[in-house]
Design a protein around this nucleic acid. Structure first.
Lengths: 132, 132
DNA sequence: GATAGGCCTTCCAGCGACTGGAAGGTCAAG
DNA sequence: CTTGACCTTCCAGTCGCTGGAAGGCCTATC
């Protein structure tokens, strides 16, 4: 299987797959002319990676998960620990965005949005709120 | 006012302030020996930038907002447009994270987390869910 | 056998928004 | 006059790709 075929199968762009090889996440073999040749096992690894990335795991977490994926003696506790840590990180990010959202939505709601210079959004960013 | 003083005032690290000068967001004057010298107006711009960045606006959006901040003939409609677009972007990001969260939380909840190899999280990443 | 065009390869550069660190100049205090 | 805290510039690295250039390979058609 060449790179564009496996790319179609796992939903990752060829460029990304080359990059994953560069950082050691996969090791496809090569044809005599130098083309990458992907086995079914390579395709499975890539599909696994694509799913893990879609869930927001970082590359290093993916590397650890991939090791566990192929470790027959793995401990589910270790997998769970990584996943739970990532879940906590997602929650942290959601909270951060929610706080941004609340502050920004408040400013937007107070702005009349007309063709005049007086603007509560600008005033808020300028720090006017702190004085009134 | 030198860089560390203004940094303390606006809550941005000196490195970031230098970077903001490099990309043209501020133009502090210089002392004869080459030190940056920040006016009150510079400090206000930096405080404005710090608040806009905390609300998640990108550098280019900050640039546009800063122009509007100092434009006495600005239109609140234009400010509102930028802010509303950013609000929509934040909502999009929150949705994305929520979807990740839901999928990941489901996997974590199904994992017993014991010292055994059978693990619904790994199975889910491997695509087992699709077959059952 | 020539040619076209669609694949493949490598390498280099750039994104956003900083951040770290090295090498060296300046300034105030003692 | 030295110390140490500040300041300067410049270069490299972060993360996870992504774009593009230059060139090789493979298949089909004429």
């Amino acid at each position: 299987m060449n790179i564009s075929q496996v790319a179609r199968q796992c939903g990752l762009p060829p460029k990304t797959i080359r990059y994953y090889e560069e950082i050691g996440l996969i090791r496809p073999s090569r044809t005599p002319s130098g083309y990458r040749s992907f086995s079914e096992a390579d395709a499975r690894r890539l599909a696994f990676l694509a799913r893990a990335r879609r869930l927001g795991f970082g590359i290093d977490e993916c590397r650890a998960l991939l090791d566990l994926y192929e470790d027959q003696r793995r401990s589910a506790a270790e997998v769970r620990r990584i996943a739970a840590a990532h879940l906590a990180e997602i929650d942290r990010r959601i909270d951060e965005l929610r706080q941004m959202r609340a502050a920004l939505a408040d400013l937007v709601a107070r702005c009349h949005g007309q063709d005049r210079p007086d603007c509560p959004i600008i005033d808020g960013l300028a720090g006017e709120a702190e004085r009134g």
